[in-house]
Design a protein around this nucleic acid. Structure first.
Lengths: 109, 109
DNA sequence: TTGTTTCATTGCAATATTACGATATAATGT
DNA sequence: ACATTATATCGTAATATTGCAATGAAACAA
């Protein structure tokens, strides 16, 4: 199958899993960390920084862009990618709500 | 390929992506939310709660267990699954460090 | 013992993901 | 115009993930 049955879950659950899936590859984690670290960033920078082929990086960037976590400005022949602050914040809120759940103390194990 | 080149990334990046991957499916998100909500839990409970076949739920539980996020106690013919508090906390710390990164204000876009 | 309940495992089909070579595109420099 | 640089897209091979029917295993009940 390989196909998640998203229709049987809440919007919140699907959102959480979509964001989490984006972070589910170390290259995308590395890309995001790098984008946080420096102020301007182009794809070529990421290729040499991360060590995957240019088409691979481009593909990862596309996924992050589709989710709205990053945005890219064309500047001449290169593209300036950076974190989309607003969307990152709202994503963080959704993820925090999931991660910060409190465990009921009368647990059985 | 379908194979992440984990050796070219830091331990932290690989850890983040491993946890994120676990949350990258709505069924696993739903399972964890359910385990948080109630104090005791057995697999059959989850099957009726979530609506996937029993082997599918069992498989998702196994992945969460392998990561250490949940643990299961055998109780007669049923199994009591619950959140592993300590491991959940340390996971939360690792994820928070990633999610709470601050954006340098002199961003280009 | 025989059946029942509960969960795990196996095996497999369908689909998704990852990676990259080859190629396309688009802006710029000469 | 032509070459160069930077990134995107296409095509495809290798591998991973998801889902479930069938079956197995373990505890319990009659």
């Amino acid at each position: 199958m390989g196909l998640a049955k998203t229709e049987m879950f809440t919007d919140e659950q699907n959102k959480i899993s979509m964001f989490a899936k984006a972070f589910g590859h170390p290259a995308r984690v590395a890309i995001l960390q790098h984008l946080f670290k420096i102020d301007t960033c182009i794809c070529g920078d990421l290729v040499s920084e991360i060590g995957l082929a240019q088409p691979t990086i481009s593909q990862h960037l596309k996924e992050l862009k589709n989710l709205g976590l990053i945005k890219g400005n064309v500047e001449g022949t290169s593209v300036c990618y950076c974190i989309d602050k607003d969307n990152w914040s709202s994503m963080k809120g959704i993820m925090a709500q999931f991660l910060d759940q409190d465990i009921s103390s009368n647990s059985c194990c």
